[in-house]
Nucleic acid binder design. Structure first.
Lengths: 97, 97
DNA sequence: TGTCAATGTGGCCACATCGCCACCCCGTGG
DNA sequence: CCACGGGGTGGCGATGTGGCCACATTGACA
């Protein structure tokens, strides 16, 4: 009962961490390999600091990890299984026609 | 590009509609068959109106549908594929140990 | 050393979300 | 007709979120 509530809350947090267009775009890019903040910023089209905060959210939830090479920080997808979310979401969007 | 942004936004909306512990609990219950608002209210443990609003969110995103029988309203899961989200979320939670 | 380029962080504001209260709608049963 | 119960909606306060600005940090390079 209380335990189940906690499970739902944890799952909700994971979904929430991904429930943002910019973060989905970042994850989608990282599915094709690690990427620098600069490239991600250009891709998303938002302010650098905004992208940095999105990355902080993904990092805080253990979805991505960062690697520093000189002055450039590269991000990697830590849980590639999040790709399933894209398939799930697409299927939901398709089924509700 | 603009098209892709739209896809990410749509997927984000679906994830957002499910990114709530109460709504996840509701969906989890509906996976086992249709259910009345009263029973869902008792299950979630929140106010009736709060549950009603959660159901409205799920309805607005085409995830559930409602059927009226007298004065009782039954909700049904319209897209059972959302069960995949539970598996996805669990896997993410497991992988980040 | 100094400067620049690449990131992260704190703060702020506008906006959305959550949960509850009061209230309204509709069907049932007297 | 009225009273009651199941559900839905509007609005409120509290809280969270997205995005931008200013500033701090760190490494590269002269």
């Amino acid at each position: 009962m209380k335990k189940n509530d906690d499970i739902f809350r944890r799952q909700a947090r994971v979904l929430k961490a991904l429930a943002n267009a910019s973060r989905l775009q970042i994850v989608d890019r990282l599915l094709r390999g690690e990427c620098s903040v600069g490239e991600l910023t250009e891709l998303v089209g938002s302010d650098r600091t905004t992208v940095s905060k999105h990355l902080a959210v993904l990092r805080a939830h253990g979805i991505v990890s960062d690697r520093r090479d000189g002055s450039v920080v590269f991000y990697t997808l830590l849980t590639p299984c999040v790709a399933n979310f894209f398939a799930c979401a697409s299927q939901v969007l398709k089924e509700r026609l």
